[in-house]
């Protein structure tokens, strides 16, 4: 079994929702509430050591519910191991999750981009403001209900 999965099932048995193996990629879906604890454990764990966050992606799964989600791609240089961590956010109207900017500094800009593009709030983020769109922009362009053209 993947070491990250083993660690999470040992330390956070109630948080792991689903583990999917597809084309050699391991995707672990967890509940969003304790995401900072989970990320810290994966980063500092001796057998995991995911010191490097590749990216965070915001997801809009509409029309499915829960509509929004956040995906983290992690890499461990120690074991040359890669996992994808996923959390679905319960609130479709005002989606929010804790920020992991304190775990990995690089998360800062990724979370700003998701806030800008998807409208997902990151609680505890040091500087949550728009990044790609102008600061007075209305709406979140990467949501599925945002029009592709005709603005």
């Amino acid at each position: 079994m993947n070491k990250a999965v083993a660690l999470l099932e040992e330390k956070f048995p109630d948080e792991v929702v689903e583990v999917v193996e597809f084309r050699g990629d391991t995707t672990i879906e967890v509940k969003p509430e304790r995401i900072v604890d989970i990320c810290t454990a994966l980063k500092d764990g001796h057998d995991t050591g995911f010191k490097y966050l590749s990216m965070i992606a915001g997801m809009d799964y509409s029309p499915a519910s829960p509509r929004f989600g956040v995906v983290y791609a992690l890499y461990s240089h120690k074991h040359h191991d890669r996992i994808t961590l996923k959390a679905r956010l319960a609130d479709d109207q005002a989606p929010a999750i804790d920020s992991v900017a304190k775990v990995w500094s690089t998360a800062n800009w990724h979370e700003r981009e998701i806030y800008d593009m998807m409208g997902i709030r990151f609680k505890g983020h040091p500087d949550l403001r728009r990044i790609l769109m102008p600061s007075d922009w209305v709406g979140h362009p990467q949501r599925k209900d945002y029009p592709l053209k005709g603005m």
Binding site: F22, S54, R82
Partner: peptide
Amino acid sequence: KGEVYQCIEAPKGEMGFYIV
């Protein structure tokens, strides 16, 4: 149906594609 993350060593660093 599925999701993958594939990254390559681009000239500027890791370039990754997460496709669902």
